[in-house]
Design a protein around this nucleic acid. Sequence first.
DNA 1: CACTAAATGTTATAATTTTAACATTAACGC
DNA 2: GCGTTAATGTTAAAATTATAACATTTAGTG
Lengths: 253, 253
Amino acid sequence: MNGRSAQRLAKLQEALASGGTLHLRDAAELCDVSEMTIRRDLTTQASAISLLGGRLVMANYPGVTPIYDLTEQQASHYQAKYRLCQRALAFIEEGDTLFIDCGSTLMPLLSQLSHFNELTVVTYALNVANAVAALPNVRLVLLGGLFYPASQSFGSDNMAAAIERLGINKALISAAGVDLERGVSCFHFHEVAPKQAAIATAMQRLLVVDASKFGVVRPAYFAALDNFDVVVTDGEGAHSSQYLGCGNAPLLS
Amino acid sequence: MNGRSAQRLAKLQEALASGGTLHLRDAAELCDVSEMTIRRDLTTQASAISLLGGRLVMANYPGVTPIYDLTEQQASHYQAKYRLCQRALAFIEEGDTLFIDCGSTLMPLLSQLSHFNELTVVTYALNVANAVAALPNVRLVLLGGLFYPASQSFGSDNMAAAIERLGINKALISAAGVDLERGVSCFHFHEVAPKQAAIATAMQRLLVVDASKFGVVRPAYFAALDNFDVVVTDGEGAHSSQYLGCGNAPLLS
DNA sequence: CACTAAATGTTATAATTTTAACATTAACGC
DNA sequence: GCGTTAATGTTAAAATTATAACATTTAGTG
């Protein structure tokens, strides 16, 4: 609850905004106070900066942010997501132009794309774009527009048109809900247009969802289950197998 | 030079790809080796992962990446960029729709935008988008397209058209070279179209360059000096003042 | 001006991370 | 199988970072 403390944090935040890290020592010097004061600023006031092993980093940057480290439980939960993406990976071939949907489901897939020599990724999600931008061998096409923080993705009127102009080979679509009767749905309405456009354009349509999404309906409906050529999922229980005969979608469980 | 070491790193990289940090302890457990082995992997093999205070982070994420911490020299160099942006900030008003150019020049400006209540930022640069996405009070419009790693920005055929459809208030343009006779230039040709479109559409055009760019010519010409309403620069030496009378551009030095 | 309380500095101690050295195990060629 | 080398594990010491306690300064108030 201090004006000067807030000022210091603002100064540091500005210094970090361009990216990079700042050693506690340098931060203290920059603000002309002791290291202890910077420490206290950080613990007292809530800020976007976090201290990671003596270095200040912007907490709201992906890759640092979730200060709640992946503990063992989360690591095992990650394993599930990872396995799901491994299955999806089996459908990807050299030279593909992939549409990658927003959300966190498909994130583990992205780093694996570095094993290919030539690939193009089309996406409308900022987190996906950041991960793909780091891959030297993958061309990235980001469909821009107005940013929606909730889903870390972009929306615009002519997104559908932009997608249709691209030669998308395979569309990897994620969902928040999958129901036999009510179809496939997500949370945000602005995701509907790009998802539908990708489904309409792509030569092969893959729905990638973990088993926990089955039987769930979310506000924004965007496709019927038989709009997909493949459903990639994880569980092998009764839940997933009941979808086996439905539509023309072969199920990989 | 070890296959198993590389495999471990790949595994860890995949675990980190979705963002977040992994404690050395957890990483060791995940790979079923000792912490020391992970340490050795990291130092032996070049990888995108770096160790920051006992935690593994993706080095190629902005905000962590430049492991070369801002030392005192860099901090002072930052001060110069910061002051330049402070001057540019003076031209920004509540409710503005700003076009923010790519490059690192305008990065220190972005965090300062959090002091406004309502602002819209239009950009075609990924680093700018990431910084703005973190600001809750600033609407972000990202102009997408094919990603150019060299400038961390996007290019597309209809970028000019997309820019012209927006009601851009003020265009903040950066440059790699400014010359009285040869005009204003940058490195990459795909930047020319968005820059020119922003200059054409915006109500107010600001060129933001530090004094070191004066007298320099770069491959891609994109504007004459008198296309700008304001030139924001830092030095107050003879170099910058010689531009004072030129065109209709009032100089803020 | 003296008094109070908040803010900051200093120091010592505890916890953690890093480094180095050496022990052990696994892999490979002969 | 034996010997050699690389890979990994273990341990102790050094360096760094975090925490806590107390000292000092600063700002505000009557």
